[in-house]
């Protein structure tokens, strides 16, 4: 239980604190990586979507836009990742990398659609940035999942 609450909160705090100090960190979405990890590890779609939704809503609260945009995107990702986790070998690094890349793009697409067409924010889609950020998150995700696996084994 402490890990379930503590790790997402730490990820949100680090995202807010580090993204400002390390410019490259703005490509990283730590809360998303944590959402994918927990969803795939539990393999329970309901737990996955609720975890993703909660993390997304807190992320929305810290941002400038209406609450719910990240919430919806991460709910979808949490549901999808947990469904995948039940069917794939979630321990394999290659699978994890591909899944993370795919879910990053899904997350960005859902976020963009909700922000653009529901909230009417003037956002512009950038394939270059999306793909680059997806790759960065996929590589970082593999390392992070390894660390979280160790943490899970200890607890």
């Amino acid at each position: 239980m402490p890990v379930t609450i503590g790790v997402p909160l730490l990820a949100l705090f680090l995202q807010a604190f580090l993204a400002w100090r390390i410019p490259l960190f703005s490509y990283v979405d730590l809360p998303l990586l944590v959402t994918i990890f927990f969803a795939m590890a539990r393999r329970n779609p309901v737990a996955g979507l609720l975890t993703g939704g909660a993390i997304g809503l807190v992320q929305d609260m810290l941002g400038p836009y209406p609450i719910g945009i990240y919430g919806i995107a991460k709910t979808v990702v949490g549901f999808g990742a947990s469904s995948f986790g039940a069917k794939l070998d979630a321990e394999n690094a290659g699978v994890r990398m591909l899944v993370t890349l795919g879910f990053y793009l899904l997350h960005a697409t859902v976020y963009f659609c909700v922000a653009r067409y529901m909230v009417n924010l003037t956002l512009h889609w950038s394939w270059g940035r999306g793909l680059l950020a997806g790759l960065v998150n996929a590589f970082l995700g593999v390392g992070l999942y390894h660390l979280l696996d160790k943490l899970k084994e200890r607890t």
Partner: peptide
Amino acid sequence: NLTILVGVLFLQVLGLAVQ
């Protein structure tokens, strides 16, 4: 699972619409 997903998404969309 799908019903809960739709329900959670609906609630969030409703919240967004209110905002």
